[in-house]
Design a protein around this nucleic acid. Structure first.
Length: 617
RNA sequence: GGUCUCGUAGCUCAAUGGAUAGAGCACCUGCCUUCUAAGCAGGCGGCUACAGGUUCGACCCCUGUCGGGAUCACCA
């Protein structure tokens, strides 16, 4: 059945042409939900037509309204207030809509659109466990993938694991020097935390070494010779730390040697590297599992960091790149408002962007996706502008379908999270804490007493994760987020559990329907639809269009806010109207069907943002 | 300094250029003898950072100012 809003738009365009002889594009006709203080379901904004009608807004609205009611059978009546044409939809239309929506098990999901989309998200380093920032990235990426799929695209979910480089070498050196042969198994610790601890320990040891070094004569002499007149000793050594680490530090030397051995493929080093990364991966697997996400394909930086050389050759051939005297290769983006960027060093080694160019091409060869979404924090906006511009100039076949889903950092009230200051909100700890809170509240409520221990755990887990995920997804991606660990995450109000609770209420009705074998056939005879019911119908009606819109905007927060609005409408409906104990069999059947549809849409929409619905709570 | 981005209630967030800018938290008041009160209803709380402009109409678009953040590496 056709969408009523589209019908109205079409009919308005025709009416405008008929009355005033002006062509209007139907899609441009503004049709909004009517605010609750006015009579009507949808309102047409008349102001844009006043110019061609050469009449007052109200008179124009009257004319158009009269024609609409004649030509659109689903319209019952209209009224005009201050240039707004308010339209009332017939109960028959709503009833037919409800019936059709209920008959469609995939309501809100769209048919295949022929696109193949790759979504890259998470992409962690292997030297520390996942934290709240990763959680935002992961949830955004996952939701984005779900959304694209619901909008009809085929989706491939990938991550690039940054498994090489200085960071992991630090953890390796640390383990060799200080672990006494301990492993995650011997300590009963999660592997990623074990390796992360080694990294933090290393950082501390470096600091110790640096402080000791500063006391030496050589260091003091250095300070005397090199410091700027205005610099205190403290400031000087603060600025000098990197240089010292690379030139004088014993630990720094160890790390550089480790990196060199790794690059040479030294067997012992490779073994240690594989062993430690293996620990990290087993830890990540657990966290990903707890977050309810998975990937179709993992890429490892150790396999991709040398890529991109052939694309550089290609770029030189196409004269997109040029070579400087020293042999380094560049791309000139000054005409696009950027600078000249290096893509290959004089010694022939890759830089960051070279890797990304090569990886982009390799992944296209692997999957042939015509669109790629990179879920990466907004620190890298510039990098992606450059990357996309270069790929466009290289005329890569997927270049038009590239999108950087850029999101703001998660910060504490005191500012950025810092590993060194121990203010990082750990993903595993956060989830555990939320589960504890949800468990306490659940025990107090006592609704789950009849369930087995296993079922109780599972339910509480869904509630806790629902709270966390909704908390993160409801905020528009590009905004930075403040997370206050003192306040944790609410379970009441505008939250995931609030939405889950509306579903649980519906579920309890549906169980009674099944048990008492209620016949819902009488619903078709229901008329006199109440405002609370209308609110729900209109929200359900909007769902498919919303999915497309959110997918197009790459914005899961639209779905989260929709879920909240729908749940809110349902809670009010539940409070104001009797469902099972309705006055008439028609009303009861209709409201049960309405409840059933609402439950299904809620479940479907929440699934798009990675939130599961409990049956009870 | 250049570029990008954000600025909405005490706090956390909404609002395809449309009607009186909405929610939640916090604080106060009511509502469980009828389908689960993680709920519902009400109160308090706003010169949408500021100044101009475009428009019938601006939180939204344009210009400028102020404030926060990011970025401008042969680091990743």
């Amino acid at each position: 059945m056709s969408n009523i809003i589209i019908n109205i738009q079409k009919a308005v365009a025709e009416a405008v042409f008929q009355c005033y002889g002006e062509q209007t594009e139907p899609a441009k006709v503004q049709v909004n939900p009517t605010p609750s203080d006015f009579t009507g379901d949808y309102s047409v904004v008349i102001f844009p037509f006043v110019k061609v009608s050469k009449k007052s807004p109200d008179a124009t609205a009257q004319e158009i309204g009269t024609i609409l009611v004649e030509t659109v059978p689903e319209l019952k009546a209209f009224n005009v207030i201050k240039g707004f044409l308010n339209l009332e939809i017939s109960d028959a239309y709503w009833n037919a809509f409800l019936h059709a929506a209920l008959a469609n098990p995939t309501y809100g999901r769209h048919p295949k659109n022929g696109h193949k989309v790759m979504v890259e998200f998470s992409s962690p380093n292997t030297n520390k466990p996942l934290h709240l920032g990763h959680v935002r990235n992961i949830l955004l990426g996952w939701s984005c993938a779900q959304l694209q799929e619901a909008a009809g695209s085929e989706v491939v979910k990938v991550q690039i694991i940054n498994d090489r480089g200085v960071a992991i070498c630090k953890s390796m050196v640390s383990w060799k020097r200080y672990s006494n042969g301990n492993t995650p198994e011997t300590l009963g610790q999660k592997g990623d935390h074990f390796v992360g601890d080694a990294y933090v320990l290393f950082d501390g040891k470096v600091k110790e070494e640096y402080e000791q070094w500063q006391q030496t004569e050589a260091a003091q002499q250095f300070f005397q010779e090199k410091h700027k007149p205005t610099q205190t000793e403290k400031d000087f050594f603060k600025d000098y730390k990197n240089k010292w680490f690379n030139e004088f530090s014993e630990l720094g030397t160890d790390v550089r040697e480790m990196l060199l051995l790794w690059e040479q493929g030294d067997p012992e080093t490779m073994d240690l590297w594989r062993k430690m990364n293996g620990w990290v991966y087993s830890g990540f697997d657990k966290t990903y599992h707890d977050l309810g996400v998975s990937f179709d394909k993992l890429y490892y930086e150790s396999n991709t960091y040398l890529l991109g050389k052939d694309i550089v050759e290609d770029g030189l051939k196409k004269a997109v790149f040029f070579k400087k005297e020293d042999g380094s290769v560049w791309v000139d983006l000054t005409d696009a408002g950027h600078d000249e960027k290096v893509v290959l060093r004089a010694d022939g080694t890759s830089v960051y962007i070279t890797q990304d160019l090569g990886t982009a091409r390799m992944r296209y060869e692997d999957f042939g996706c015509d669109r790629v979404v990179y879920v990466v924090a907004d620190e890298q906006n510039y990098h992606f502008q450059v990357l996309f511009e270069v790929l466009k100039r290289l005329e890569e076949p997927y270049a038009a379908g590239l999108h950087h889903l850029s999101y703001g950092l998660v910060e504490l009230p005191t500012g950025r999270m810092k590993t060194r200051e121990g203010t990082v909100v750990d993903a595993d700890e956060l989830m555990e804490e939320l589960i504890n809170i949800a468990t306490a509240q659940s025990v107090e409520r006592g609704e789950l007493d009849a369930l087995s221990a296993e079922e109780r755990r599972e339910t509480v887990r869904k509630v806790a994760m629902g709270a966390l995920k909704f908390f993160i997804i409801k905020v528009h991606p590009k905004k930075r987020m403040i997370f206050n660990p003192e306040e944790t995450v609410d379970l009441q109000g505008q939250t995931g559990p609030y939405i889950q609770f509306s579903y649980v209420r519906i579920n309890s009705l549906m169980q009674r329907v099944a048990k008492e074998q209620v016949d819902l056939g009488a619903a078709a005879a229901y008329h006199d639809i109440q405002p609370q019911e209308k609110e729900l119908l209109r929200a359900l009606h909007d769902y498919p269009a919303l999915v497309l819109h959110a997918a197009k905007e790459y914005d899961p927060s639209l779905i989260a806010n929709y879920c909240y609005a729908l749940a809110k409408a349902y809670h009010k409906f539940w409070h104001d109207l009797s469902v099972f104990n309705a006055d008439t069999p028609e009303a009861r059947a209709f409201r049960l069907q309405l409840s059933s549809s609402t439950g299904r849409v809620l479940k479907s929409a929440m699934q798009l943002i990675g939130i599961e619905m409990p049956e009870k709570m």
